[in-house]
Structure formats: C-alpha cells, structure tokens
Amino acid sequence: MQIIVCVKQVPDAKDVRLDPKTNTLAREGVESIMNPYDRHALEEAVAIKEQVGGAVTVLTMGPPQAEAVLREAISCGADDGVLVSDRGFAGADTWATSYTLAQAVQSIGPCDLVLCGKQAIDGDTAQVGPGLAQRLQVPFVTCVQKTRSVSKEAIEVERMMDDGYDVVRLPLPALMTVVKDINEPRVASLKGKMKAKKTKIRTLSAEDIGADPQCIGLAGSPTQVVKVFSPEPRGDRRVFAGSVEEQVEQLIECLKPYL
C-alpha cells in the first residue's frame, strides 16, 4: 500500500504571544515544529504500513528549512520525503495549498491513501485535507479517531462528530484527516535517526509538479488577509481583597442576580 502523509512545519503557536502594550508579536525562542496533528497522521500511516505492507512517503510544501520535518518523519518510520518548495508558493491560502499538494501527490505517483492532520496549529483552518480530496477526486472523511480495519480495497474508520462518532467505510484510494486521540506517536529510534540522516530528500519546484503559476501562492489564493490586530480586552473588572471568606461574601453579593 502506498501511503502519503502531508506534514507541515509550523511555529510553535503556544509561544507566539502578542504584547498588549506594543501590539507586536513576541516570538522570542519560538521554535519551528512538526504540526502536532501531523505527527499522529504519520504514526497512523506507519502503523497501517506495518500491518498491510507498503511504503510511507511524507510530503510537505514549505521553505527549504521545512526539510527538517521530513527528516524527523523519516526518523519516526516514514520511508522517504518530498519537499515542494518554490518562492512562488509563498502566501498560499488553503485553496492554493491544496492545489499545490495535489499536483505534488500526482507527480509522486500512484497512491492508495493520503493522510493529513485534522488542522495545522498556525491557522487552525482544517481546510487543506478536504480540499486535497476534492482535487484528487477521492472519497474522504475528516477527524478520524480510530482505524478499525484496513485492506487493499477499503478502510473502516471511526470519524468524530460533535455528539459522538460515526463508523464509516470508504473504498481506496481515499483521504482522511486524523485527530490526536487516534494513537500515541512513537519516538524516533536510533536506526530511524541514522536513516533520516542518510535519506536523500527529493525537492520539487512549481515547474517540476507542473503547477499553473496563477493557481499557487498569493496569486492563486482567493482569500486575502487585509488586517492583523490583537484581540480586544474586556472592560470592567474587579478583583476582591481580604480573607477568602470576605472575598466569597463580596462575590455572592455581585452574583445574586445569577443564583
């Protein structure tokens, strides 16, 4: 079974803070990491490969340094990595990203299963997976929390809903996005790390994947960011003082309308 996992390098969002006074982003020490959800997608792909055989290719679109996440993925069980990188990809929204990834998937070759994380933590959009399925014209489900069974023909999964889950069977080739509950990602093995060092990462440009310049990057993106600003602070507030008992007393007075 040929499996492709889409992984994205993202800034560690929890470290990105906005300084409320200067309205600037404090990104001191913000590291680039593999998108946490993609780690689970990778683990699931490797587990499926171990069960039914085949190969796992990790794919990323990003700047040259995004190669790091591909090597990391290889150290955790992927067989090889493909980096699609081109100045022209900068500024891609999810529409242009799914176009680019689809072109890349098609240039990599036949594939039975594409796995994505549920969402990337820099934008939290969760749109690239479904978009990619549309472009590849394959059936898909999102937010998979468990793979029940896999065969050459089909995959049966539990897909999370707002009020529970659905058990869904879909024929291969197919695409799915995964949530964190699906598995516990393994840590890199020593052997894996050695392999990651040695493996040659294939790099593809926009031209290599036959991308239409009008469909990639900022030019191909229907959405445009027009303003970035910090969330508004809340007004009126009161922190009580005194002993716990006194504070509780004061709070109860204020809460009376809600009791």
Binding site: K14, D124, V225, V226, V228, F229
Partner: peptide
Amino acid sequence: PAFGGNIMATIECP
C-alpha cells in the same frame, strides 16, 4: 482568530 487566538486577522475575497 489566528495563532491560537493570539492575533485576529480580517480576511476578504476580492
């Protein structure tokens, strides 16, 4: 919200 809510972004589709 973007970046886990640290910043807000306004977006349009011109």
